[in-house]
Amino acid sequence: MKRDDPSKAPRIVVIGGGTGLSVMLRGLKEKPVDITAIVTVADDGGSSGILRNEMQMPPPGDIRNVLTALADVEPLLSKILEYRFQSGTGLAGHSLGNLILAAISDITGDFVTGVKEMNRVFAVRGRVLPASNQAIHLKAEMLDGSIVEGESNIPKAQGVIKRVYIEPPDVSPLEEALQAIREADGIVCGPGSLYTSLLPNLLVPHVVDEIAASQAVKMYICNVMTQPGETDEYSVSDHLKAIHDHVGHPLFDYVIVNNGEIPPEVQARYAEQGAKAVHLDLDEVARQGYRIIADRLVLFKTYLRHDAEKLSDHIYQLVESWMMRKR
């Protein structure tokens, strides 16, 4: 199958945000697939939060991360897009890629058009789309009844999350994103922050309805480590239960998890930050009706990351097998 014939390539929609999604996409873009990434617009911290407030635009950070991951450009240009100013009044803390996306959005007069132009200019393999053309405000109701406002503030609250919700609740979904879900052969959710990267996309009206109605194979990629202030002490089934509780029904056919050993010294380093390996309660996951793909899927350099190549192999093989069964 040739990469230059995307009409015959499996169509894969990935949904999420954050670093984990970008890492996975660096591997998936090397497969002969047609990728559409639907990315959260709930970020309100750092450079994204400043641009969101000052320019009244959706936050660019997660979009920029995914654009960079899928861009077919020289490594130096990728580093330029990721470059973050360390000094300068008004510049310190800003990512150059965020500023470029803000500028293109301002020039074209529309955030979605700006993202599309970035897709074209940086030769993105596939498409990157925001879940909505509007910035979303994320809020969390904690177990003690308190409300935490803002995506960046939710983990800092260090409480137990009961549920998250978006405002406005009737935010308009991007029609192109819904159409991509309808046409998909495979739909992948994650990896990424459960409450602040994945669920904000699923809470956009009609997104879950389209996923549920789709005949595509649907996969959830579970995080390797818990996230302090979000998923403390969570097992794999706890992640799935949280999604089920928010959307009202099961969404996935397969759950992809890491079962590789994490070295004790790496676990100790993460424990200092309050994180630990997600407990693999695979019997409970299977009891809930999910099929499980378990493999050694982690690499460790400075941080634990999914092995993008192996993870992409599993995704591609699942989609290919699913398509063969449908023929």
Rank of each mutant, 00 (worst) to 15 (best):
S197E: 13
F300S: 01
V66I: 15
R305H: 15
E74L: 12
R127V: 00
L178M: 09
P250K: 12
H206Y: 13
V13T: 04
V285D: 07
I50S: 04
E233G: 00
D62H: 09
P169Y: 07
K156M: 13
E272P: 00
I50A: 06
S47H: 02
D72A: 06
G126C: 11
D295S: 13
V41P: 02
S105Y: 10
A308H: 14
S146T: 15
V217I: 15
G20R: 04
A212I: 15
L101Q: 14
P60F: 02
D34V: 04
R84S: 00
R26E: 15
E233M: 07
L70E: 02
P75N: 01
L318N: 00
L28C: 07
G192T: 13
V41D: 02
I293A: 11
D281F: 04
T36E: 04
V285A: 05
H279S: 05
S312G: 11
S48A: 12
L25Y: 01
F111G: 06
G61A: 08
S214E: 14
S48E: 09
P10M: 03
M1H: 12
A103S: 15
G49S: 11
E230F: 05
G229A: 09
I221S: 04
A42F: 12
E54G: 04
N98M: 13
H206T: 15
G88E: 08
L311D: 01
E230S: 07
A177P: 05
F252G: 04
G93Y: 14
T113H: 12
W322D: 02
E167Q: 05
P191C: 06
S193I: 14
T108H: 12
S237C: 01
V257Y: 04
I315H: 00
L76E: 03
L299I: 13
V148G: 07
Y195C: 03
P250V: 00
I187G: 09
I80Q: 00
R287W: 12
D106Q: 13
L143R: 14
L51P: 08
H249T: 11
I161V: 10
Y303S: 08
L96I: 15
G145K: 10
S193E: 12
S197T: 09
I154A: 05
P264M: 02
I50G: 00
T108A: 12
T68Y: 04
H239L: 07
P205E: 08
I80S: 00
N258E: 02
A157V: 06
R291P: 01
E233Y: 14
T113C: 07
L81M: 12
H306I: 10
I154F: 07
I292W: 13
S78W: 00
A275P: 08
S312C: 10
R3P: 02
Q86N: 07
D281P: 10
V224Y: 07
R120W: 07
G97E: 03
E272K: 15
P32T: 04
T196Q: 06
T302M: 09
T302Y: 11
